[in-house]
Design a binder for these strands. Structure first.
Lengths: 173, 173
DNA sequence: GTCTATACACCGATAGAC
DNA sequence: GTCTATCGGTGTATAGAC
């Protein structure tokens, strides 16, 4: 439903209707609408964590190729679903704060990214911060200004190389 | 009100109350809540256009200094107000599309940026796209992950230099 | 236990009196 | 132009059938 019509348009009555229930019955399964958002947040980050692990298993060996691989993985996962990206990375639901439980896979994903970057020699905190901001910026521009297109998707590899140069990764053989 | 409590929390009843009216009376001045958002969108971009023009009048001459100046101007304007940034640059209000009239100052601001970048030798569309994505990424990361702090603000100049290197701007004297 | 039925306070929006 | 009254829809809550 979030993918179809946006996060904010979700109503409990329609959620219930789609699973053959009346709205109040949802309260037997979730404490509140906030709890549903929270579960979706945790689920989305768990999906990404899984995607990262799959990406790791198919990881190239060269540092720059690995960086491109990680960047492409993040970009495609993020840009393929606006509502999910907003839920995961932006403050789009008023007052929403994830619970510790739902936040755990987000922490795990960032930790895994940190390890993967460390594996190719990128360890400084500001370098990791910069890498996430760069990729987030491309995703954001793509989703906001050219949804469904590839105007910023085409810049992913260039940006990755620019970042690799900046942190002093060795040039490719 | 948007700055205080977030864009989505604005209710017509409170808007009306703050100007000593009843909610339905607002419809004598705006066609709908969407029209109010639209006016805010136009107003925000007009503010930024004005900020850009002020920045131009105080512009440094060296290309890299100019780039830093533009980047800092954008970052500070954007990061200083989450609600405004979301309204201007993200798809945070469900179904919101600015009218042609409100979109005009946004087009004008982008055109002015394009001219300012052209003035220091940056003319290719993908270079302009990259520059806006880079700055947007820093703002987004700052607002989402460290609101009120400076964890990504500290990366603005480094990112600018990285971009300047990438597009082949001459090194500073 | 899980559902249906119903209620409440709030929302954006409209009708019509003045 | 502003008001009161009201509409359908929303999140939320509870009572009570089964």
């Amino acid at each position: 439903m979030a993918t179809e019509q946006g996060l904010a348009q979700i109503t409990l009555r329609e959620v219930a209707g789609r699973v053959g229930m009346q709205a109040p019955s949802l309260y037997s399964h979730f404490e509140s609408k906030h709890a549903i958002h929270d579960a979706m947040f945790g689920q989305a980050w768990t999906e990404y964590l899984e995607t990262l692990r799959v990406a790791e298993s198919a990881a190239p060996t060269s540092p720059r190729a690995m960086l491109r691989h990680l960047a492409r993985t993040f970009f495609e996962f993020s840009a393929s679903n606006l509502a999910r990206y907003q839920l995961m990375n932006q403050r789009t639901i008023p007052g929403f704060e994830p619970s510790a439980e739902s936040y755990a896979p987000a922490v795990a994903a960032l930790e895994l990214l940190r390890e993967q970057l460390a594996g190719i020699g990128i360890t400084r905190e500001e370098d990791v911060d910069l890498s996430t901001a760069l990729m987030g910026g491309l995703v954001d521009a793509q989703l906001a200004n050219d949804p469904g297109g590839d105007r910023w998707a085409r810049l992913v590899e260039r940006t990755t190389e620019m970042f690799a140069d900046n942190v002093g990764l060795p040039p490719e053989a």
